[in-house]
Amino acid sequence: MTPRAVCSRCRRAQSVCYCHKISQLPTKTKVVILQHPRERDKAIGTARMASLCLPDSELHVGVRWGEHAALARALSDETRPAGLLFPGPGAKNILAERPPGPITLVVVDGTWSQAKTVVRDNPILQSLPRYAFATPEPSQYRIRKEPNDQFVSTIEALMHVLGVLEGDPAGFRALLDPFRAMVDMQLHCQATRPQRRFRQERGPRPERPRLPTALTSRFEDLVCVVGEANAWPYKKDANHEPDELVHWVAVRVATGERFEHVAAPQNRLSPNTAFHARLDEATLAAAGSRAALFDAFAAFTRPSDIIAAWGHYGPNLYRECGGTLEPHIDLRALCQRLVNKKFGSLEDAAASVGSPREPLGMGRGGVRLSALVQLVEHWRATYPR
């Protein structure tokens, strides 16, 4: 089959290209769009469309923004103070309370869940003044379902906000021209797509997912890790200190060798840390330094070890707090690929394969590490190698 010709500008198939509808709209407002990686290749996304219409805008892709040089430069522009377009406590209605001068407007592009997670996990975004608005008209995003009538696409949000900030609501409705064209073309394609009248014969069943080498030929090198943090509530205090590692547990699954180290918090202790980590304040206060934790874990690991964790939070926290850690395997992503259905939390996933086991360390970290090992052993016994 011949590949479809693709427009290099909008990155859509040329048969549904919307570039002829794009208008250039210069702005005094500096627009910085932070796109979640899962939205980058969505053909019906609007972040790229908006960046093509706004010549002075910036579009960046990622989920961690604490050390992003381009974002830091944009936020340091004193002539255009930065603000985050995202609802939350203290957010000003930007349509009713227009800033007195030009601003740098940071917009997070993604599903509501993705955007909420990006803001929650990035103190640099939480520290920005917030703007929000109640949409004055229903969304025209007829090809994508929003969880709430007040939610609109990125380009629709920019149309409403820039219309007010630039003092030209009618002019910035031109942002919707390529948006409407894309929606109309998508609906036309769906309506004219040939319908199958006959049931298609199924081929052979696909082979069950195979396990990665870390769980098969290199099982001796597999080290599962769990990290617990001193973390402040994200919604209540936008100026809190960044999350810091206070508990690190690990096990070399093949041999049962274990590692555990508690590090005393260097910042104020969050009121929820002892509860969530299940470590009392006295234990945390009497613990050693984080540098000692890093040195001890470096001595525990071997050059050939493969680090595995549930998601990315723990390993990323370890690195962000100053530790050196090789790239890790995401066991949560592996679980999704193997079971191909919703499984909930790590504890829920482990409970679906057997009764809870004895913790492999103190507090919640020991419980979660035990759950990780339970899943790994279940997968090795169930899936082809």
Rank of each mutant, 00 (worst) to 15 (best):
M1D: 02
T2H: 13
A5D: 13
C7L: 10
R12F: 01
K21V: 01
K30P: 03
H36K: 05
H36E: 06
D41Y: 11
S51Q: 13
E58L: 09
R64Q: 12
A70S: 14
L75V: 06
E78S: 14
P81F: 05
L84G: 07
N93E: 12
I94Y: 03
L95M: 15
A96K: 14
T104D: 05
L105A: 08
G110L: 02
T111G: 07
D121E: 15
R130V: 08
A134Y: 06
E137V: 15
F151Q: 08
S153L: 12
I155G: 11
V161N: 10
V164K: 08
A170C: 01
G171I: 13
A174P: 02
V183N: 10
Q200W: 02
T216S: 12
S217H: 01
R218N: 08
R218S: 11
F219I: 01
D221H: 14
A229D: 07
N230F: 12
H240K: 15
D243E: 13
T255K: 12
R278V: 07
E281F: 01
L284Q: 02
S289F: 03
R290V: 11
L293G: 08
F294L: 05
A299R: 10
S304W: 08
A308P: 05
A308R: 01
G311A: 02
Y318Q: 09
R332F: 05
R337M: 04
P356S: 10
G365D: 06
G365A: 14
L375M: 07
T382R: 13
